[in-house]
Design a protein around this nucleic acid. Structure first.
Length: 286
DNA sequence: CCGTTAACCTGAGAGC
DNA sequence: TGCTCTCAGGTTAACG
């Protein structure tokens, strides 16, 4: 269930482990992920060197030495685990979820010389996608909105995109064609910092608020990366977890708690806005 | 084109 | 203990 910061952390640990390494073997036990796995998935990956490990928005990208790319989206419950052959020890690279993984949800195993990585995904909303070449990769990412941290996300872009938009700002922040990389946790946190009500309609967002949105969306995402992402729900079970942004939440999962702004007597409201839970201060956010 | 809703899945936790 | 219900960090097809 990762957003940009969590995917970034997975990328960093994955890169350290598999970049410049050769894929020896691939074993797939379930091809039915969000999208059916490529017919020749194993063949395409086997005996290839991983030249690059990248991340764009919420996607992981493995660049192979045959000019192909493997894009990975973790969906809501996808995690990547590392199994060391010699130590027979399982390390969860996606530490935002419990390291205990029921084997029945291990769908893909990628073997390197003395370790393997395992893709585990109970809900199977995640997917692996093969991209032919660099041009196709660029095309793929042109279809989604600018990444929250990119320079393409600027005042001019937001101003233009907000004209006549009747969607509320919470939904717009979650819309990957509007801005990519933000999910439910961070959209709530960003709007809290901006003091904008999640239900505020796009075209009613003022210039001053656009500036705040730009500043705080980049600020929150960068801060979350710095804290190693958010480890929620199972995080208490994870020893040695470095993801600690959940301790910095102002609104997410803080229903009925006091607003953390000094002097504000507001409390945090939980409300469903378009099927996603929204958390906001009933006084601060207008 | 735009906006909304339901759907895709499984498992954890709450309430009874 | 066990049943039923709701909810979960995401996306997208289908519809009006």
């Amino acid at each position: 269930m990762p957003e940009l910061p969590e995917v970034e952390i997975v990328k960093q640990s994955l890169k350290k482990k598999i970049q410049h390494k050769k894929i020896k073997k691939v074993i797939v036990s379930n091809r039915n992920l969000r999208f059916k796995l490529h017919k020749n998935f194993e063949k395409i990956l086997e005996n290839r060197f991983v030249k690059k490990v990248l991340r764009k928005s919420k996607y992981l990208i493995l660049g192979l030495d045959n000019s192909k790319y493997c894009i990975i989206h973790l969906g809501m419950s996808g995690t990547i685990h590392l199994m060391d052959k010699t130590k027979n020890k399982n390390t969860n690279l996606s530490f935002y979820q419990s390291p205990i993984l029921p084997k029945k949800h291990n769908h893909i195993e990628i073997f390197f010389s003395n370790f393997k990585i395992i893709y585990n995904d109970p809900r199977r909303f995640g997917y692996f996608f093969i991209i032919k070449n660099k041009l196709e990769l660029e095309k793929f990412f042109l279809k989604i909105g600018p990444e929250v941290l990119s320079k393409k996300l600027n005042f001019k872009y937001l101003k233009k995109k907000l004209i006549n938009r009747k969607k509320n700002i919470k939904n717009l922040l979650l819309d990957q064609n509007f801005i990519s990389g933000i999910g439910n946790i961070y959209s709530n946190e960003i709007l809290f910092y901006c003091k904008i009500h999640p239900n505020k309609i796009g075209f009613k967002i003022t210039n001053k608020e656009i500036k705040k949105l730009l500043y705080f969306s980049k600020f929150v995402i960068k801060k979350a990366i710095k804290y190693g992402g958010s480890s929620i729900r199972d995080f208490k079970n994870i020893k040695g977890s470095i993801g600690s942004f959940q301790l910095e939440f102002n609104v997410y999962d803080r229903e009925n708690k006091k607003c953390l702004i000094k002097g504000c007597n507001g409390k945090i409201i939980k409300k469903f806005i378009s099927n996603r839970s929204s958390f906001f201060c009933n006084i601060c956010q207008k």
